[in-house]
Computed example of a mutant assay.
Amino acid sequence: MSTEIYEIHDPRFGGLIHTNARLETLWNAGRWCEGPAYFAAGRYVVWSDIPNDRVMRWDECSGYVTTFEKPCQNHNGHTVDLEGRLVSCEHRGRCVSRIEHDGSYTVLADRFEGARFNSPNDVVVKSDGSIWFTDPSYGIDSDYEGDAAESEIGARNVYRIDPSGAVSMVVSDMVQPNGLAFSPDESLLYIADTGQTHEPDCDPVIRAYEVQGDGVGAGVDFVKSDAGLFDGFRVDTQGNIWTSAGDGVHCYGADGVLLGKIRIEETVANLVFGGPKKNRLFICATTTLRAIYVNATGAAR
Rank of each mutant, 00 (worst) to 15 (best):
S2V: 09
E4H: 11
Y6T: 09
I8C: 06
I8K: 02
I8T: 07
R12H: 05
F13H: 01
G14L: 13
G15Q: 11
G15H: 10
G15C: 05
T19I: 11
N20A: 14
N20D: 15
N20I: 13
A21K: 09
A21T: 05
R22C: 08
L23I: 10
W27N: 02
A37G: 14
Y38W: 15
R43P: 00
V45M: 13
W47V: 01
D49A: 05
N52K: 13
N52S: 13
R57Y: 13
E60S: 14
E60W: 07
T67A: 04
V80P: 12
V80W: 01
D81W: 14
L86Y: 06
S88K: 02
H91C: 01
H91S: 00
R92F: 01
R92Y: 06
V96D: 01
D102E: 04
G103F: 10
S104Y: 09
A109H: 06
D110R: 09
F112I: 01
R116T: 05
R116M: 11
S119T: 01
P120W: 02
V124C: 12
V125E: 12
K126V: 11
S127I: 13
I131G: 07
D135K: 00
S137H: 06
Y144T: 04
G146S: 03
G146K: 01
A148R: 12
E152V: 02
I153F: 07
G154E: 00
A155P: 03
N157L: 10
S164N: 13
M169L: 14
V170N: 09
V170Q: 11
S172R: 15
V175A: 14
N178I: 08
G179S: 04
A181M: 03
F182V: 14
S183F: 03
S183E: 01
P184Y: 08
P200M: 12
P200C: 11
D203E: 15
I206S: 05
E210F: 03
Q212A: 15
V220Y: 04
V223K: 04
V223S: 00
K224Y: 13
F233W: 02
R234Y: 06
V235W: 05
D236R: 05
Q238M: 11
G239M: 05
N240W: 02
T243Q: 07
S244F: 01
D247M: 10
C251L: 04
Y252N: 03
A254W: 08
G256Y: 07
V257Q: 13
L259S: 05
G260A: 07
G260K: 00
R263L: 15
I264M: 06
I264T: 08
I264S: 00
E265A: 15
T267K: 13
A269H: 08
A269P: 06
A269M: 04
V272G: 01
K278D: 13
R280L: 08
R280C: 14
F282M: 12
A285V: 10
T286C: 10
T288R: 15
L289K: 02
L289T: 04
A291S: 15
I292R: 05
I292S: 04
Y293V: 10
V294N: 03
V294M: 12
G298L: 10
G298T: 06
R301C: 14
